[in-house]
Simulated assay, not measured.
Amino acid sequence: MMPFLVVISINAGLTVGSWEIIIALILICCNSFLKRQRPEILGLLTAFITGIGIDMRLFLLNNLITPELWYSKVVCFGIGLVVIGLGTATYLHTNFAPILVDQLTLIIQKLTRTNIFFSRTFIYLVFLISAMILDQLGLELY
C-alpha cells in the first residue's frame, strides 16, 4: 500500500501520512458496506498513529540519516526491520485497534471463500495497479 500512498502524495499533494488517514476513511466505508455493519471508527485511531508516524519519519529522518555506503544502508535496514517487528508484535499482543487492510482481507476471504493469501494478494494488486495508473496520469499532467 505504501507505493500507492507515495504516488498519490506526489501527484495530488498532501503528505504520505495524510493520505494514509484518507485511505483509512475510505477503507472504513468499504469494510462497513461489505460487512453490512456499522463502521468501525476505532480503526481510524490506528491510521492516525501510522500516518503521524510516517510523516514524522519522513520529516525528521530524511534530512538526518542519508546512508550512502552499502553497509550503512544494511544497518538502517536492520534497525528498521527490528522496529517494524517490535511494532507488529506490540500491535498483535495488545489487540489495540483493527488495521483496516487486515479487516478487508478477512472480509474478501469470507466473501470469495478463498484463502488469506489470495485475498491479500488481490488487495495489494489493486493498490499496485492503482499506483501505476495514478503515476502515469500524474506524469501526463506535467
Rank of each mutant, 00 (worst) to 15 (best):
V74P: 09
I123G: 03
R113Q: 14
V101W: 03
F59G: 02
A89M: 11
R120M: 15
F118I: 06
C29S: 14
S9K: 04
C30P: 12
L125P: 01
Y91Q: 05
F33V: 04
I10E: 15
T46Q: 05
A24Q: 11
K73G: 05
P98F: 02
R57G: 14
L34N: 00
H93S: 10
G78F: 11
K35N: 07
R113K: 15
H93Q: 11
L42T: 05
Y91P: 10
T94H: 06
G78L: 11
L125S: 01
N31V: 02
F48P: 11
F48S: 07
N62M: 09
V7Y: 03
G78S: 14
N31I: 03
L27D: 12
Q103E: 14
F33H: 06
Y71R: 00
F127W: 00
L104A: 03
N63W: 05
L45F: 13
C29V: 06
L34V: 00
I28S: 02
N95R: 06
T50I: 13
L45E: 13
L128D: 09
S130E: 09
T112W: 07
P67N: 04
V82Y: 12
V83S: 14
E20I: 07
Y124Q: 06
I21E: 15
C76A: 08
F117S: 12
S72R: 01
S72A: 03
E68V: 00
A97S: 03
A89K: 08
M56E: 11
I49L: 15
T105L: 01
E20K: 11
T66E: 15
F118R: 03
T88S: 06
N63V: 09
L61P: 04
T90I: 09
L86T: 08
A89T: 07
R57V: 04
W19D: 10
A24W: 08
E68W: 03
M132D: 06
E40P: 05
N31L: 02
P39M: 07
A24V: 00
F59Y: 11
R36D: 14
W70V: 14
S130H: 02
I65R: 01
I23Q: 11
V7M: 08
E20R: 11
F77D: 13
R36S: 09
S130C: 04
A131H: 00
A24G: 14
T90S: 13
S130A: 00
S18P: 15
V16S: 12
G53Q: 12
N62L: 09
I84G: 10
C76M: 09
R38V: 11
N62A: 10
C30Q: 08
H93N: 10
C29A: 12
F77W: 09
